[in-house]
Every structure is written in C-alpha cells, then in structure tokens.
Design a protein around this nucleic acid. Sequence first.
DNA 1: GTCTATACGCTGATAGAC
DNA 2: GTCTATCAGCGTATAGAC
Lengths: 207, 207
Amino acid sequence: MPYLNQCTQIPEPVDCRILTAALDLFVETGYHKVSIHEIQRRANVSIGSIYNHFGGKEGVARALHQHILRELEDMIERVCSGIDSPLHCCEAIIAKLFEHTETHRNIIAFAFHAKHSDFLPDEPLLYHSAPFSRMRSIVEKGMARGEIREMNSWVATSSVFGGAIRLIQLRLDGVIDEPLSGLHEQLMDAILGGVLPGRSPKKTAAR
Amino acid sequence: MPYLNQCTQIPEPVDCRILTAALDLFVETGYHKVSIHEIQRRANVSIGSIYNHFGGKEGVARALHQHILRELEDMIERVCSGIDSPLHCCEAIIAKLFEHTETHRNIIAFAFHAKHSDFLPDEPLLYHSAPFSRMRSIVEKGMARGEIREMNSWVATSSVFGGAIRLIQLRLDGVIDEPLSGLHEQLMDAILGGVLPGRSPKKTAAR
DNA sequence: GTCTATACGCTGATAGAC
DNA sequence: GTCTATCAGCGTATAGAC
C-alpha cells in the first residue's frame, strides 16, 4: 500500500494528510456524517486547501476511491505474480485480504464495507472496477483450465470470494474477534470441497 | 410480506404509505440523500404526520428496519416449517431469498444492500438480528447433526450464505441480468460440493 | 498554495390552527 | 390526528487577503 503508507513519514504532503484523515473519518463515522470541517481539523489544513486539491468533499472521496482500487489491483498483481495456478492465486488473494484486514483495516473497510454508490453515484460499480474484474477473470481462467468446475462465472466468483468477503465484513464489525488468518484453512476447505461432510479436499490435491 | 403488501390495497393507512414511500426512496437514493420533505411528498402526507407517527426521519428508518427484519424472520420460519433437515432448510431459504429479490426487490435491497449502521448507529448489528441469528443457528444445527462438516460456525455460515448474498447484491445492482432462480442449482452445487471439478454432489445424496 | 470569514441553501424540527 | 408556515443550525462552497 504505497502512497497512504508514506503518510506516516515526515514531512507528510498536504494531499496525503487530507486523504488519510478523510479515510479514517469516512470509515469511523460514515461518509455522510463527516463534514469538510472535520476533515480540515483532523488533517491540519484549511478548507481552502481541500478545495484546491480535490474540489470538495466528493472529490476527496473520489480520489480515495480510485487510489484504494489501484492499491488493491497492485496487491492482486503482486500476490499472483509468481503463481501459475488460478486456484492458488485465489487462495493467495484471500490470504492477503485477510492479512490486510488486520494491518490496513481502514483501506479494507473503505473497499469492502462502504456503499460507494451512496456517495459516488457517477463512479462505475465496484464490481466493474479493475481489482474485482481481475478476480473474476482469474476464476474464469481457472474454469478454462479445468481447475474449477464449469459454471456461470458470477456464481463461480461469488462462490470463491463471497464467503471470504462476508468474513471480512464480520471481522470489521467486530463480530469475529480473532484475526481471519486462523480461519483461512477452514474457509478454503469449504470453498474447494464444499460444506458436506467427508469431502475435505486433500491439501495435496490442490497443490 | 404481510404489512407492506397491504399498502397496495385501498384505503392505505397513513403509516403504511409513509413506510412504503420511505422504503422506495431510501433504496433508490440512499438514506442520507432523502429529505423528510421528499418522503412527505411521495407519501401524500404532511410533515406533521410523519413526526406524529415516527418522530422523524430516523424513526421512520427504525420502524422500517424492525418491520423488515420481522418479515424476514417470518419468511424463514414459514419456509423451514415443514423441513426437518437443516441443510435443506438453508437451500429453501436461499431459494426464497432469490425469489424475493425479484418480487420484493426493495425489501431485499433494504435488508441486504443498505449499510444500516450508517443511519441507525444504535440499532444492534444486522448479524445479531433475529433472521441472521436464525440462519446461523440452522447451520450450527446442521453441523451438530452431521449434515455439515464441523468447522467454525462463522466460516460455515459465511460459506453457506455468503455466495448467495453476494449474488443477490449483484442482481440488485443490475450486474446480473437474469433472475437468480436460474442460478440456484449451480450455486447449491458449489456450496455443498465445492468448486473443484468432478465433485458435484449427487442431488440424491443431499435429499 | 494556503488561509479565514462569510454567504447561501437545505434540512430537520417545531408551533399552533384546524 | 393532520396540516401549513416558519425557524434555527449546519454544511458546502466562495471570495479575497496573505
């Protein structure tokens, strides 16, 4: 997560301070309940600067949105770079998402827990964004290679990632009180082999 | 869906007109972008009436929230009433949710597509509400009976319902342009038998 | 580029007649 | 119970000094 992480260094560039302050506030309070004045206060900048850099509150949200989608995309690219099997790629993505849920909580929360269409109506749907399209195309490649059974690609993608995303949301809401990494193996068993008893896939079979 | 459906009859009670108008507006536009004035206009009532009945906009949302959760709970109870197997119960719930996504779109959208904590911060989390607790306890019973492999109950519940909920959201957003009922069988195969090839569970096995 | 002070519109909420 | 008219507060956006 390159850019927003640089913000922990000094001196922090103004636009970066604004973005991190806005990210934190949006996640904590919800976009609509956050005023520009709060962002301004938390970021230690003036309202004028916010308008100069982003053109307003919605502009901040849009910049944040695009920034985080790009970081997610980069993450997927990085994680999958050395992996040939699409199925292992999916597994690695889920593991990394679980990891980021602990280490980059607000970024994951903004990506998976916010309803972007509520405040960025003109932005294309999240499902059509690069990282989510990428996940779907990986699943499709898995089907083409015979690693994943043939089925409707939305069903396949939802089956592979739906449970993981749900767990992430539960973790973000504090319903699950342990890091998700401890649940990763069980989840992968359920995704690959289903929930019926006596069908747990031998780990070697998928590797 | 007893009460809100009565609103299609005449004469429509005032509080019901308010709730249906608010539901439609909240789903179409998002809670925060809807003003009381709009609800008042769409429902053909006065602002005073809204305050008399619900005490304000948030009161309307809270009534809607509780109402819809109760309807979901009733639906689950009804659907599972004649079914003994927890696993078949889950399957029937998913089928019914898919059906309602077409026939009671806004009710499903409000339940599964809104971020309630954004406008009802004091309400308990959706995951702790009756219908969602019910789903989880059904899954747990399935594990106790040996119909579902033993695993963490959050993982199990997310594995059983996570994909379905994701598909519902895709359908609500118009990303999937066919009724979900046509995807139900494929999804159940993936849930029960996993996504690996050659593992499709014989339908008879689960029945 | 950055800041402060100000203006304007909208929204939630109330008061009081019927 | 229902309605209309009105108010007070807040949040966005701008203007203009530095």
